[in-house]
Simulated assay, not measured.
Amino acid sequence: MIYPEWFTDGLALWVHCVHIQNTYSDLYDALVFFRGDLAGRRAHEELVAKIARDGWNEV
């Protein structure tokens, strides 16, 4: 992490948050993973909802 916060040590990747490169070079890949392709196939919407809930509850 470039700018660690007080809560950084308590976060687990793919449990409380999803890591994105600071250049955003992998942002599209992460969006496709969670939302699926243009037709919505292979989406992981339940996983992203769980990560969002767990991340919010952790802070």
Rank of each mutant, 00 (worst) to 15 (best):
L27A: 10
W14Y: 06
S25E: 13
G10I: 01
N22L: 07
I20D: 06
Q21W: 02
H19I: 07
E46R: 11
E58F: 07
R42D: 13
M1G: 07
E45V: 09
V18S: 08
E46Y: 05
V59R: 15
Q21I: 00
E45H: 03
V32W: 00
D54R: 06
V15I: 10
W56K: 08
E46D: 14
D9G: 10
I2M: 12
A49H: 07
Y3H: 14
D29E: 12
I20Q: 09
G55F: 05
W6L: 15
R53F: 11
A12R: 15
A12W: 06
E46N: 10
Y3D: 14
Y28T: 15
E46K: 10
A12H: 11
R35S: 09
W14R: 08
E5D: 12
L27G: 06
V59H: 13
W14S: 02
G36N: 02
L38N: 14
Q21E: 13
L11K: 09
V48S: 10
L11T: 01
Q21R: 12
G10W: 04
F34V: 03
A30C: 12
R42K: 15
P4G: 08
H44L: 00
L47P: 03
A49W: 03
L47M: 12
V59P: 09
A30E: 11
L27H: 00
Y3A: 15
Y28H: 15
V59A: 14
T23R: 00
Y3C: 14
